[in-house]
Design a binder for these strands. Structure first.
Lengths: 218, 218
DNA sequence: GCGTCTATTGACCAGGATTCAATAGCCAAC
DNA sequence: GTTGGCTATTGAATCCTGGTCAATAGACGC
């Protein structure tokens, strides 16, 4: 996570390098491709917002860390919150991608594998995962939507793999189970008291219980 | 939810009412008892923060809605966030109080009753409950702590009522179950697709499943 | 009525989000 | 290799909102 952009586009020619010692080390304007810069800012935002809360991270800090002017941030993201939500969306998508289990596996294995990769993601990204899930920002619409969609996508994957029809109660149960997974993942990250394998086993088995009980609940 | 304080302390004497038409309707300073004022501001804060996110509600708006100067808010709450957390804490405590089931009931009935009152609370307070749970504010420490303590208290209640010892995995499972309840409650509020009684039955039965499965998970 | 206590005010300040006209890399055409 | 144009980038100015503080004005006891 290098917080300073390597002025690679400059190295080609290294022209207009006045070598004036006006300021100790003032890197010349680094002009990147739009996509590169956007990706850089996104990644930086993600890493900063993962460690500290939304308004503990100022635009100025963000800009300084990126080695870029404040104005440029606004060129890429119309508002601070947009940067935040974009970063969140990015992380959420990454989570969805990684936890998509190979379709050739048997249903039970798919479930287990999905849970395993989910926990891996949580463990690997630590604070970012917490930020993603606790996502809050005080019930902000946009944020809530991102989380909502993410959960919804996961729920749909599960429902699709189920041999029974997705009645409202089954659907609710699956949503609940996702809440269960999030809660235990968070708890697990915080305390690391239970063995990872046991947790996976518990979660997998529980999915069966949950769906089963939902199906027979009158 | 009247957003203007009735100047009740003034009605006693109604003195120094100059009746000058200097401004259409400028209510005289209403001097309340500290506790009253504090309670009023807390309630107002809760209602506003329940509807819109933390920084969509400005101090100015809060003050205007309370019919009070900005400075007074800061007399009662050292910071905007303090007001927010105080309101949140208040709501959380209320939730805990209401969901405490009568101790004379049998364990199963206690569980059922607790869940019922929990859902009632969620239903009755609607947006406030959502704000409480989604509470985030970007993983702000203080906020997270309030939610953490609330969940922890509920978990402890359950663990105390359990006939088995609270091993780490059982503890984790109970935490997970609480996450399950929150997720389904939120979903239920949003869609109201499943019958309340069925949901209670599902949640109650699941608590048993969860604890049982946790206890036997190797 | 008068003095005291303190709840309340409103003008002020500071810091951080946002805007925008001006600047400067890079590329292509000559 | 110079010139012109496109646009990524800047930084100074603005605006908004959270937070401060000395001054004001209800209530109450005397």
């Amino acid at each position: 996570m290098d917080r300073r952009v390597a002025p690679r586009t400059v190295t080609k020619k290294a022209r207009t390098q006045p070598a004036q010692s006006e300021s100790p080390d003032k890197p010349p304007r680094a002009r990147l491709l739009v996509d590169e810069r956007r990706a850089q800012l996104l990644a930086l935002g993600l890493s900063l917002f993962a460690e500290r809360s939304y308004d503990e991270v100022s635009i100025d800090e963000l800009a300084r860390a990126a080695g870029v002017s404040k104005g440029l941030l606004y060129h890429y993201f119309p508002t601070k919150r947009d940067l935040y939500t974009a970063a969140l969306r990015h992380a959420a998508q990454q989570l969805l991608d990684e936890t998509q289990p190979p379709p050739e596996l048997l249903p039970e294995d798919r479930a287990r594998r999905g849970i395993e990769t989910y926990l891996s993601f949580a463990e690997r990204h630590g604070p970012a995962y917490v930020a993603l899930m606790r996502g809050g920002l005080g019930a902000d619409r946009e944020i809530a939507n991102i989380l909502e969609e993410t959960r919804s996508t996961i729920a749909q994957r599960i429902l699709d793999a189920l041999p029974i029809s997705a009645t409202p109660i089954v659907r609710a149960a699956v949503r609940g189970w996702i809440g269960f997974v999030e809660a235990t993942a968070l708890d697990w990250l915080a305390h690391k008291q239970v063995d990872r394998g046991r947790l996976v086993t518990l979660l997998t088995g529980l999915l069966v219980d949950v769906v089963g009980r939902a199906a027979i609940t009158i």
